[in-house]
Amino acid sequence: MNVGLTGGIATGKSTVSQMLVKRGAILIDADVIAREVMEPEHPVFQAVQHRFGPGILNEDGTLNRKKLGEIVFSNEEERRALNGITHPAIRAEMKRRMADYEAQQPERLVVVDIPLLYESGLEQLFEQVMVVYLPREEQLARLMQRDGLTYEQAQSRIRAQMDIEQKKERADILIDNSLGVQETEAQIEQFWRNMRLL
């Protein structure tokens, strides 16, 4: 069985994914794959550098994520350009890993953490989609604290994604992460038990 895991930025997807891994799930993290394709030797990185220029690089030739983020989160066209370069490669690698795990370990749950799952139209790849939910104001506060962003910077990152309330409505499985870690853990335990009964 596979589950697509999504939510909004700073809603707690990583916390939930680790709770699932602790119970025996296999995790494929789209953000990890996204970092891998941005290593200097990867063809995707070369294409991004060509498109955005040397201003997005650190002195050692690696990607300066902050500089690239400033460009793409303040300009919709630039963000689309970046996604057009990176998303096909990330999706291909994600699908390859899903197929490998499902063939090699069919009895285990494969969880694929994709922040932009709905935005990318990928829900059809999964048997179920789990959404980690946090009310928008709490999401904003957590993002500002976690990443040291101003209110405006945090707002622009949240606006770059589908509204969390829309994701909540579309979820097959909803994990409300606004009630504390223990309550989140209890919801995951209930999901795990229900899944085991299938």
Rank of each mutant, 00 (worst) to 15 (best):
R157P: 04
N177Y: 04
A25R: 02
D163C: 08
V131H: 04
N64A: 12
V110L: 05
L5S: 01
A154F: 12
P54W: 14
R96T: 00
K168A: 12
E36G: 03
L122E: 07
P40L: 02
E152A: 08
D172P: 00
M195C: 14
P135A: 10
I114R: 00
D31W: 05
L68K: 03
E138P: 10
V131R: 12
L82Q: 08
H50N: 13
R159G: 13
R65K: 06
F191H: 09
Q190W: 05
F73Q: 01
A89E: 05
Y151D: 08
A10W: 02
R96V: 01
R51S: 15
S74E: 06
I33E: 04
I85E: 00
Q104Y: 15
Y151R: 15
V131S: 01
S74N: 13
A30E: 09
D60C: 07
E119T: 07
Y118A: 06
D176E: 07
E169P: 12
A99L: 10
L149E: 15
G4F: 11
M130E: 12
F126N: 02
S17K: 12
I9P: 07
R65N: 13
R170A: 03
M19F: 11
R51G: 11
D147T: 07
R65A: 06
T150S: 13
D60N: 02
Q49W: 11
Q128D: 09
Q182K: 08
I28V: 03
L57N: 11
E137V: 07
Q139S: 01
Q128P: 04
S156K: 15
L63P: 02
P106Q: 08
G84A: 03
R35I: 10
N75S: 09
E39Q: 14
F73P: 02
Q153L: 03
D147K: 04
I188S: 01
K66M: 14
V3E: 08
Y101A: 00
F45M: 04
G12I: 12
S120P: 11
A171R: 11
L20V: 10
V110G: 00
S156M: 15
A154G: 09
G84R: 02
E165Y: 15
V132L: 03
M144S: 06
L117D: 00
E169L: 14
Q190M: 08
H87M: 09
R157F: 10
L149G: 13
I173N: 11
L63H: 01
F52A: 14
Q46G: 12
M98G: 00
P115K: 05
G12M: 07
M38V: 12
Q105V: 03
Y118N: 06
R35P: 05
E138V: 03
L174H: 11
D29F: 08
A47N: 02
L5R: 01
L174K: 06
I175F: 14
S74C: 10
Q182N: 15
G121Y: 01
R170E: 11
G4E: 14
D163S: 06
E138G: 11
I71G: 14
R146G: 10
I9W: 02
Y118F: 01
Q153D: 10
G24K: 08
Q155H: 12
E70Q: 14
Y133W: 13
Q49C: 09
F73D: 11
A10N: 08
